Amino acid sequence: MVYIGAVLCIVGLGILIQPVVKQFLKIRRYSPKVHAVCTGQKPYINYLNLKMKNPVFTYTYKGVEYSSVLRLYKYREKEEYAEGRETEVLLDPSDPKEIFIPQPFVSLLGTERLLPFLVFAAAGLWMILA
């Protein structure tokens, strides 16, 4: 029972820290920072069939102007990137059209991750202590 409990605790911890590790790896890959301007919003329909918008950024890298859509925008407030607003973006040097904006650490540990972590951790601790 102790081994199963330990495995459940590790799985719960993995669920909790997975986005932090993923962002850390992306920051290492997307190393150059450039100033970008939000030039609009590109509409899309998400998996819940809701109409959403992703911001479109225009920036210059090595003398070439690029326009890219920031994907996976679900964790950000819509007003954060209003049209005309400037921000720093990280880009992939091998493909400058791919951009990334790191999220604050606290937002990576959102409630959608906290509940599964608590369930696995509680079950694991119960099995260890039983």
Results as ranks from 00 to 15, higher is better:
P96V: 03
K74Y: 15
I128C: 12
P104I: 04
E65D: 06
F117K: 11
I45H: 01
P55I: 00
E98L: 09
V37P: 00
K62D: 11
E77Y: 09
E112A: 06
L70Q: 07
V34S: 04
L16D: 02
L109E: 04
E80V: 00
H35P: 02
L118Y: 14
R85W: 11
Y3C: 04
Y47L: 08
G5F: 00
I15S: 05
V20F: 07
Q23W: 05
E65N: 07
H35Q: 13
R113T: 01
D95K: 06
A6L: 15
K97I: 00
I17A: 05
V119G: 02
M127G: 08
L115M: 14
L129K: 14
Y3W: 14
P104Y: 05
R28M: 02
S31M: 01
Y47N: 10
P55R: 04
R85Y: 13
L48T: 08
P19L: 08
L108W: 10
I99H: 08
S94A: 12
P32I: 10
P32R: 04
Q103H: 08
E88N: 10
M127N: 14
V56E: 10
F117W: 15
K26W: 06
F117T: 07
K26H: 09
R85M: 14
I10V: 10
V106Y: 10
E112L: 03
A6V: 13
F117C: 11
P96S: 02
I99R: 07
P19T: 10
P104C: 03
A121E: 12
I27Q: 15
P93D: 06
V56P: 11
V56D: 05
E98M: 02
K51C: 02
Y47R: 10
Y73W: 11
K53G: 13
S31T: 14
P43G: 10
G40F: 05
T111R: 12
A36L: 05
P43I: 01
N54E: 13
